[in-house]
Nucleic acid binder design. Structure first.
Lengths: 125, 125
DNA sequence: TAGAAACATAACGTGAACGTCATATTTTGA
DNA sequence: TCAAAATATGACGTTCACGTTATGTTTCTA
């Protein structure tokens, strides 16, 4: 199939397909000479796997580190272990961000109180 | 004074001064003809006020919305009220982000458990 | 009155994942 | 066979606050 069909079936834009090709996430479709690119069902499966991993919150770079395993490890264990490690890292990062935001929030609250206090002094009543 | 002194006393780079001028946060220093720009203590005070507001977490755009009040309202009440409104908005945004991150964290935890479960089934022992 | 120091201005780079033209070529359908 | 549809390729835009060259001009100092 050509890029139009591929993109439609994968529910992405043609731009996305080309972008993935440009960053090496997807092999460019084969072609004869300088004509159009032709893709197979394998490319479609790969695009769908990419989307699935994106929905888990992986970046394209992280997806690039695991995607090949999905198509080389027949047991499916290796890719899942790697994804698991990435998810655990994300969990740590999320918890760290939550902590930072909570810190930021309490600083904000303190500053708000300072301003409120000042304005109450300046404008009694 | 010229930009070198100004930047040094304000503890910013010359690039920062010029950037602020380019986005209208700072009036360009006066000059005669095509020579150098000359600044006064007022500019220095303005840069210090900008820095102070940055440390409260305001973006340059938000600072642009309040900075003039600091130099036109002698009571200082108006700018503080506006900053207070912005800080309250930041507080709401921070709380919202915390909520989203907590949601994200629990989704991550659920996914991690799924993966762990699968891997335990596949590789008993 | 040079050479040095300071300054002015322009322009690209940073990060992620594409969106959105613009232009040129290929393939298809009548 | 010729126009229309699809595709290929390139390049700029998006967010924020500047950092970092690069090149040319002005001011200062010995």
């Amino acid at each position: 199939m050509r890029i139009g069909d591929l993109a439609e079936r994968a529910e992405v834009t043609q731009r996305t397909v080309r972008y993935y090709e440009s960053i090496g996430l997807l092999a460019p479709g084969k072609r004869e000479g300088h004509g159009h690119h032709y893709y197979t069902e394998d490319t479609l499966a790969r695009l769908r796997k990419i989307d699935q991993l994106k929905r888990l919150g992986l970046s394209l770079e992280e997806i690039g580190e695991v995607i090949d395993l999905y198509f080389t490890d027949p047991s499916g264990i290796q890719p899942k272990q790697k994804v698991l490690a990435i998810l655990r890292k994300h969990l740590r990062e999320a918890e760290s961000k939550i902590g930072e935001l909570q810190q930021f929030r309490s600083e904000l609250q303190a500053n708000i109180e300072r301003f409120e206090h000042f304005l109450n002094e300046a404008q009694p009543q």
